[in-house]
């Protein structure tokens, strides 16, 4: 079998094309291709604790269908997931469990805070409820609502994807908070955040 040489892919003037493979490849930067693949292939871990779980079922079900946007496979082990969905009220007693789930996820990983309770504690300003999970794990996207409309979740998902498109492993980019750098997902730096990144309190 003859091997196609590089010259066959190119026009006489050097532009791509000119063979049967003309429509079979595209050129891109490695980082762009990686980010593109990442943002459309979320392996989600649903950490569902409360009534927002009903809305989560709705938004991932066939009517609203986050599968269209790449948020597809729920993995029921954090070791296989890269998107942590925190759905529902988190109590102080649950906080170490949530933190541990987040630490078990491999990089790169993102956290979606789903609903008012997760964002701020919601209506539960009392002895039991964590007043916003960003005191436990770094949050990439906050979805407001009690519970959020499916459209709000999809909007947040698209915003997160837009952010991931700009994320690079070797340089910080702006995130939704403004000028702060995005979460570092350097390999080998599991869970480690550089100064100035999303506020996190070490345990």
């Amino acid at each position: 079998m003859a091997t196609e040489t590089r010259e066959q892919f190119l026009h006489q003037d050097g532009r791509p094309g000119g063979s049967d493979l003309r429509d079979s490849f595209f050129t891109s930067r490695y980082e762009d291709a990686l980010a593109w693949a990442r943002k459309f292939a979320f392996f989600q871990y649903p950490f569902v604790t409360a009534c927002c779980g009903m809305e989560y079922m709705s938004v991932t079900g066939p009517r609203f269908d986050t599968d269209r946007f790449g948020m597809t496979l729920p993995r029921f082990t954090p070791r296989q997931a890269d998107l942590l969905l925190v759905v529902g009220t988190i109590t102080h007693r649950q906080a170490p469990i949530l933190r541990r789930v987040w630490e078990q996820m491999s990089d790169p990983k993102w956290v979606m805070s789903f609903g008012n309770c997760t964002n701020t504690g919601g209506p539960y300003n009392n002895y039991a409820v964590v007043q916003g999970i960003d005191s436990i794990v770094p949050v990439d996207i906050y979805i407001p609502g009690c519970p959020p409309r499916p459209e709000a979740v999809i909007d947040g998902l698209l915003k997160l994807q837009e952010r991931i498109r700009r994320e690079r492993s070797d340089r910080p980019v702006e995130n939704i908070h403004g000028k702060q750098p995005a979460l570092d997902f350097q390999a080998g730096e599991a869970g480690r955040l550089a100064p100035g990144q999303v506020k996190i309190h070490d345990v």
Partner: peptide, 23 residues
Amino acid sequence: KEKRQPLIGPGAPEGAADGGESS
């Protein structure tokens, strides 16, 4: 009413035990 006793996060006591947190 405002008293908080978190296991981890802001306000947590120093070295609060939470079962194998360190990564």
